[in-house]
Amino acid sequence: MLSSSLMQSPLRALDPRARLAVAAGLIISAFLVTSLPAVVVLLAATLLVGVIGRVHGKLLKLLKIFGPMVAVAFILWATMSSYSLIYRNAAFGVSFELGAFMALRLLILISVPFIFIATTTPSEVVSALESLKLPRSAIFLLSLALRHISSVSYEYQAIKEAQTSRGLELDRGFLLKRIRDYIPVIIPLLVKSIEMADRISLAMELKLFNLKSSRSRFFHHRLETIDYVVIASTISALAAILAIRWLAGGV
């Protein structure tokens, strides 16, 4: 589900740097806003970006998976915020507003990276980060990690199918049984992942990759007017949030 989708969409038509700006803007905003209505608006904006990226179907599946985690966050923040070491709520007792605020913020923090990864290929990430003059070794490491999400997921699927076809049932029974049942899948996956790392390093050398030598860049991206508009709008929105926060003491 996390592998990049190449489905054409208005979001994919943007330069990867513009997409990166939108994603970074939404994440920073999620940390800057402090009121429930503001976080609701931010979540609506995130979902809108998902719809524009045509990944809303996958996003809904992801939210189903993370639903229980969000629910737990809601309950804990609503009932136990007064015990937090870092967050002090003025009132003691139950605060559903705080619970909802934190749960929605968590949803935004889960959804935004997902939308970015699902609409941006590893080579686009590399290209976007290279143009920002970030260290090449760090960029390459990140792109390799992103690229191999799909390889690991393929290995996981193969192991799961092989074990299931020999009668292993993974999604039945109590939590402890389920965890135990996953051991014959997880251990081979770890072994295979280590083997994969070895093979990748050899394969990279066979493709003449050398971190110290310069490389051509075939997939060039040029910022178009629409990209400038999107980046400028994101920066303006962030500036507005900061200004309101500074002037009015909260958004």
Binding site: S123, L208, F218, F219
Partner: peptide
């Protein structure tokens, strides 16, 4: 294990970029 790209084109281009050719 020798395939790097996400798409066919990306995979072929990966090695060629490493050659640092125009």
């Amino acid at each position: 294990s020798q395939i790097f790209g996400l798409t066919v084109e990306e995979d072929i281009v990966f090695g060629l970029e490493n050659l640092n050719i125009p």
